[in-house]
Structures are given as structure tokens and as C-alpha cells.
Computed example of a mutant assay.
Amino acid sequence: MRLTFIDTEHPLYPEELELRYQVLRAPLGFDRSSVKFPFDAQSLHLVAVDAGRVVGCVLFHPESEHSGRLFQMAIDPMRQRTGLGARLVRALEEELVARGFREITLHARAHVAGFYETLGYEVYGEPFVEVNIPHVHMRRGLNETRRSGPGER
């Protein structure tokens, strides 16, 4: 399996969109158009590719010179709970540090906030509803001491 950064012109981008739709939007009854954001082209797209197929992705949208938002993390259901999500987040963080970013924020679905907490993210602010389900705001400073996440040693 390889992790690679792509853009919206890359041949794997349609597969990334489909994975995002199948994992994040279809279960909520949304249509395919709901998965693409107006800022997709200005975002970093990190995908996990196995046997030529996109099996995971995470995106990052810069919101200032030193911070931005992680969004649309999706892992193929057959690959969930294997450490792939943690691997994607850590690889994204490494790239962001190299680019000078200092903080990542995200809107985590409430039921997966624990996953991000194991990676060093902290809840802040009040819970809210997005795409009709409970979410929490989370953030992590990239200069903080790294804690091991699932599947890491």
C-alpha cells in the first residue's frame, strides 16, 4: 500500500470522491454532489492506494498561513480499524509540518472523536450538528509532543 498526495486533476481523484461519498455521505442519505467542496482544488488530498484502488483518504484545507482544517477522512469499510486512518493522519501531519503549518482543526463526528483523541487532538467549544449528526470541534498543535496512535509504536 502506498500513500500519495494528489490533486483534483489526478486520475485517482474520481475514486477519492467515490470513497468519500460511499463512506461519509451515502449512509446519511445525501447525494453525490454533497461530497465535493468548493475548495477541493485548493486543498491537500492524501490517498491510500492498494492494488491500484483508493482505500483511504484525508484532506486538508489551509485557512491561514499556519493553520487549516482536516476534513473528509474516509477509510474503506474493509480497512477500518487497521491503523490506516492513523497512518494517513500522521503522514498528513508530517507534510504540514514541512510546509510550516502549526495547527490543525477539524469537525469530528462525535462517535469518532475518541480516534482523534488517541492521535493527540483535543475537543474545544460546544458540540454542534453538521450533516444532521452530532459533531465536536477538535484541534492539535503540530509542534506538540507526538503521542502514539493506533497501530503505531
Rank of each mutant, 00 (worst) to 15 (best):
R79A: 08
F71H: 08
R2M: 13
A26V: 03
V97F: 06
A110T: 00
D50E: 14
L142S: 13
G141C: 15
V129W: 02
F5L: 01
Q42F: 07
R25L: 15
T82W: 06
L46E: 05
S34G: 07
E130M: 05
A51P: 01
E63I: 09
A91I: 01
E94S: 05
V35N: 02
P38G: 09
V131Q: 02
R90C: 06
L17A: 07
I6W: 09
R146V: 11
P38T: 09
I6P: 01
R87C: 06
V58L: 04
A91Y: 07
L88V: 01
G52E: 06
G100Q: 02
E152H: 02
L59Y: 06
F128E: 03
A41E: 12
Y21C: 09
V89K: 09
E65D: 15
P150M: 01
Y124T: 01
E63M: 14
V123T: 05
H137G: 08
V136M: 15
A91R: 14
P11G: 08
Q42L: 10
V136H: 12
D76F: 06
M138V: 00
T105W: 15
R79N: 06
Q42A: 13
F60W: 04
S148K: 09
L119M: 08
R139W: 12
Y13W: 14
G149W: 01
Y116W: 11
L12Y: 15
M73N: 02
L19A: 02
E126R: 11
R153L: 11
E117W: 08
S43R: 02
A113N: 07
R81D: 12
R109W: 11
L44H: 06
V131F: 12
G100R: 03
Y116I: 01
V136Y: 15
I75M: 09
R20I: 07
G83Y: 04
F60E: 08
R102N: 13
G141F: 15
T118W: 14
E122M: 13
L84F: 00
P77L: 03
E63L: 15
Y124N: 04
G151L: 02
F30K: 00
L24I: 07
N132Q: 06
A86Y: 02
S43P: 13
I104H: 08
N143T: 15
H107V: 07
G141K: 12
R25A: 10
P38N: 10
E126G: 08
H66K: 14
L70F: 05
A86Q: 07
H66D: 15
V129Y: 05
G29T: 01
Y121C: 10
R147Q: 14
R147T: 09
A51M: 13
A110W: 08
E130K: 00
E152W: 00
R147E: 13
A51N: 13
I6L: 00
A91S: 14
L28P: 06
S34Q: 08
L119T: 02
A86F: 00
F60S: 07
G151Q: 03
S64P: 02
Q80M: 03
A86I: 00
G151Y: 00
L142V: 11
V89L: 10
L88C: 02
R69W: 11
S33H: 14
F30I: 08
T82G: 06
R109L: 13
E152R: 01
Q42G: 11
T82A: 06
A26R: 03
M73P: 05
V129K: 00
V89H: 12
L17M: 11
A48S: 05
V54N: 03
I104R: 04
R140Q: 14
M73Q: 03
H137I: 09
E103R: 10
R147Y: 02
